[in-house]
Amino acid sequence: MASTPTALADVVSRWREPATRAVSRLIPGGVLWYVETADPVFALTFDDGPDPATTPRLLEVLARHRARATFFLLGERVEAYPRLVAAITAAGHEIANHLMRDERSALIPDARFRLDLARTTELLAPYGPVRWFRPGSGVFTPRMLRTAAEQNLRAVLGTLVAANKGGPADERIAKSLLPGVRPGSILVLHEGGPQRQGVADTTDELLTALPPLRAVTVSDLVARSRT
């Protein structure tokens, strides 16, 4: 019997996460892609906030599910929406560095990358400790990792990535991700701007379907590492 498109999609989803783990072992540099753990937890992360169109409702969803997350925030939006940053940390979530703007970090000149990384940490520091950074578009270079290490930051990517874009495909994001989430996964979602308001519904759907797996911060996940 021929496989249906849905069945094929489920197979792809189930193998996407372990495939990313396998590939990441071949890439040097100490980038965090996942964590080996026996605990029933995964890290939930959000890029590109804070934003009044998405962050408040996301916080409501996370609170309802008693979930924790790491928010990789843009420096220019931290400056624009300080109350939202305060709300994120007040709710028990972790903040991390996503540089100043929503752009490809690998294309930024070395000097500006260094300054933008430091400036974003400086903006975040009043709200809590900053241990992690995520390069824009998920692309990094050795010099970026060296600069981050000099600033006591470690790069975090992820094993599963999705972005709400405001179209019909948004309704299928959670279903496509669910088969691949397992203990130690790092899940990357995107907020920021009216076109991404659906991220709250995506998150709600994921957290409703995932128990007994529980969403935690990146730091909590690392603390549960078996290695």
Results as ranks from 00 to 15, higher is better:
100 M>E: 12
196 R>G: 06
189 L>C: 08
142 P>A: 11
176 S>C: 09
177 L>G: 10
185 S>C: 08
153 L>K: 05
205 E>Y: 02
126 P>A: 05
122 E>H: 15
121 T>D: 09
162 A>V: 06
103 E>L: 13
164 N>L: 11
112 R>V: 13
199 V>D: 03
102 D>C: 13
95 I>W: 09
174 A>F: 02
101 R>C: 06
208 T>C: 04
163 A>I: 09
209 A>I: 11
162 A>N: 10
104 R>A: 11
200 A>Y: 05
211 P>C: 06
210 L>H: 08
198 G>F: 04
211 P>E: 02
140 F>R: 07
182 R>Q: 14
99 L>R: 07
180 G>Y: 10
157 L>V: 06
101 R>E: 12
184 G>P: 07
147 T>I: 15
178 L>S: 00
126 P>I: 14
117 L>F: 05
135 P>Y: 14
120 T>Y: 01
159 T>G: 01
199 V>H: 01
142 P>K: 01
153 L>D: 03
109 P>H: 02
191 E>K: 08
102 D>R: 11
96 A>I: 01
105 S>W: 01
133 F>I: 05
153 L>A: 12
106 A>Y: 06
113 F>N: 00
201 D>F: 03
108 I>G: 00
215 A>Y: 02
143 R>V: 11
116 D>Q: 14
184 G>F: 10
120 T>G: 05
150 E>A: 14
154 R>Q: 12
122 E>D: 15
150 E>S: 13
154 R>N: 09
191 E>F: 04
112 R>K: 13
190 H>L: 05
217 T>L: 02
212 P>Q: 13
150 E>N: 12
159 T>Q: 03
131 R>W: 08
161 V>L: 10
145 L>G: 00
104 R>W: 00
150 E>C: 13
151 Q>H: 15
176 S>K: 11
135 P>C: 08
98 H>C: 04
119 R>P: 00
127 Y>C: 10
159 T>W: 00
185 S>L: 04
131 R>L: 12
206 L>H: 01
212 P>A: 11
200 A>P: 00
218 V>M: 07
97 N>I: 14
98 H>V: 06
98 H>I: 04
171 E>R: 12
138 G>L: 06
196 R>T: 05
105 S>R: 03
216 V>Y: 01
132 W>L: 03
